[in-house]
């Protein structure tokens, strides 16, 4: 279901984070200077990122810790804005940057479904279909879903989180390393759902440390290092490059 229509276009994107230079010690300095400039320091997280991801593609991003992968996903999810450069994302994005985020342990499964969908920017419509999907994907009974989620097992929470994020077919699905938490059965179930969404034309951006996962599901990939994309190409080429960075010879 791939086409040449670009879904994600990044042009020389730079993202700076404002981080605290001195921490709490300078609360006095802040109050006397009354400006945020002296207090915060610009730290370049991403620079010169050029990337085009086409409709229906499953695109992998690999790189070491701190290479800017998560920030790149946050940029695509609209959580951070580029400091300079252009970032165009076409269509509805389902971000899965952490599994089960926003789930409130004191509330029931149903209440959490409603709340999390709302936080993800969906309206109330279609709730019946969403509920049916969540019930079947997460393998939870009505009794489970009436229960407070604090009584759920880790696996149940992970299933619920994944189900909520993928309930309505998004145009773009962002996945950040979230599948590592579950057991093998859960992972396989997630891969099946990802494949199904891809069949339906969904564009997928997949971030991971594991080359084998990228090679398993991705069509193309990019390797990141020090806040920029250093290699784009087939999963094989990118894999070789990544191993080169790590100093692994194969």
């Amino acid at each position: 279901m791939q086409s040449d229509r670009p879904m994600i276009e990044l042009g020389s994107v730079r993202v700076d984070y404002l981080v605290q230079r001195h921490g709490i010690r300078s609360i006095k300095a802040y109050l006397t200077s009354f400006g945020s400039k002296r207090l915060l320091e610009r730290k370049r997280i991403l620079h010169d990122v050029d990337l085009e991801i086409r409709a229906g593609e499953c695109f992998g991003i690999i790189g070491r810790n701190g290479s800017g992968k998560s920030t790149l996903l946050r940029l695509l999810a609209g959580i951070v804005e580029p400091t300079s450069g252009t970032c165009r994302v076409h269509g509805h994005v389902a971000p899965m940057l952490a599994l089960g985020v926003g789930l409130e342990p004191e509330l029931s499964g149903w209440e959490n479904v409603r709340l999390c969908r709302m936080l993800m920017g969906h309206d109330r419509g279609d709730m019946d279909r969403v509920n049916a999907y969540v019930r079947s994907f997460a393998g939870l009974s009505d009794a489970d879903l009436e229960m407070q989620t604090k009584r759920y097992s880790t696996g149940m929470m992970a299933r619920l989180g994944f189900a909520i994020a993928t309930a309505t077919d998004p145009d773009i699905l962002l996945i950040d390393e979230v599948l590592a938490v579950g057991d093998v059965a859960f992972q396989q179930q997630c891969y099946r759902r990802i494949a199904e969404l891809k069949e339906g034309g969904c564009t997928i951006v997949f971030v991971t440390h594991f080359l084998s996962e990228i090679q398993r599901i991705c069509d193309r990939a990019a390797c990141m290092e020090d806040g920029t994309v250093v290699k784009i190409g087939s999963t094989h080429e990118v894999g070789l490059h990544y191993h080169g960075l790590l100093g692994i010879t194969s």
Binding site: R74, I79, V101, G102, L119, G121
Partner: peptide, 9 residues
């Protein structure tokens, strides 16, 4: 913070 770090709210 957890929600604000991972969803565009």
């Amino acid at each position: 913070a957890a929600v604000l770090r991972s969803l565009a709210v």
